[in-house]
């Protein structure tokens, strides 16, 4: 479980997060949603320590992340996997080398064991026969899946995904969502996803927090989204007339 306590982040005069206190549960897909500029990415970067908070802190299973030494942070990060918005695959390495990189860096596995683990992770994300391809030779959806394979190769306890569906078609988005959810449940890990894809919200949103102007405007799960009377939430999720009609018909049923 990950817990934030009164998390504040300011950039100069601008206060992007104004005291976020929330929990991200183990074995669940936790979603951070909100409009562009609401502070989603900032919150995610604070959770993984890429930004330092201006106030408050983050707890990883009751361990105060920001009280850890640099060495302890690195040790903790070996239990963390992250999928970046643009996948962040190393261009000069093949798919196999990309996934193998954390194994090369942190384990004493033999070459054969590493290859087996890489192939297992590729199988897990439904990719075969791409070991020797470079990232530039694969599609956006494949790159996301390679990114997930790399993120799970060290069997992380915490998985972070920054806009996993951005730039993907709806069908591929669903595949990625299902993949992340099944990995989360199978391995009982804490997964935090930053998204503004409403399909993801309604499909895999087991714990959702909605950010607005640096505050939590609403929190709940995908079932509660439909029945919530929160105006900002409804305005955000069912933004178009088409989606509003869908909601109304769903409620009537």
């Amino acid at each position: 479980m990950i817990r934030t306590e009164n998390l504040v982040k300011t950039f100069g005069e601008q206060e992007v997060l104004k005291g976020i206190t929330t929990e991200f549960y183990k074995g669940k897909t936790n979603l951070i949603i909100g409009r562009s500029g609401a502070g989603k990415t900032v919150l995610l970067k604070l959770l993984v320590g890429l930004f330092k908070p201006s106030g408050g802190t983050v707890y990883y299973d009751d361990v105060d992340f920001y009280q850890l030494s640099k060495k302890e942070v690195r040790e903790l990060r070996m239990k963390v996997g992250m999928l970046f918005q643009a996948s962040a695959l190393f261009d000069s390495m093949t798919v196999e080398e990309n996934i193998r990189f954390p194994l090369d860096m942190f384990t004493n596995m033999t070459r054969k064991e590493k290859l087996a683990r890489v192939n297992y992770c590729l199988d897990r994300v439904n990719l075969q026969g791409v070991n020797d391809k470079f990232p530039s030779e694969t599609s956006g959806g494949m790159q996301k899946r390679v990114g997930i394979a790399r993120a799970i190769v060290l069997e992380p306890r915490y998985l972070f995904c920054d806009e996993p569906n951005s730039g993907l078609d709806p069908k591929t988005s669903i595949v990625i969502d299902e993949l992340i959810q099944s990995i989360t449940q199978e391995n009982n890990i804490t997964t935090v996803i930053n998204t503004h894809d409403m399909n993801s919200v309604m499909e895999i949103g087991e714990n959702i927090i909605l950010l607005n102007q640096g505050n939590i405007a609403w929190s709940g799960n995908k079932e509660e989204v439909l029945h919530s009377e929160n105006e900002f939430l409804q305005d955000f999720i069912f933004a178009s007339p088409f989606l509003q009609r869908l909601r109304e018909s769903a409620l009537q049923k």
């Binding site: 993984v48 963390v80 962040a88």
Partner: peptide, 14 residues
Amino acid sequence: QKEHIDAMEIMGVN
């Protein structure tokens, strides 16, 4: 710029 350094940081690489 391509977040490769962030990716390595998250892995625990110095």
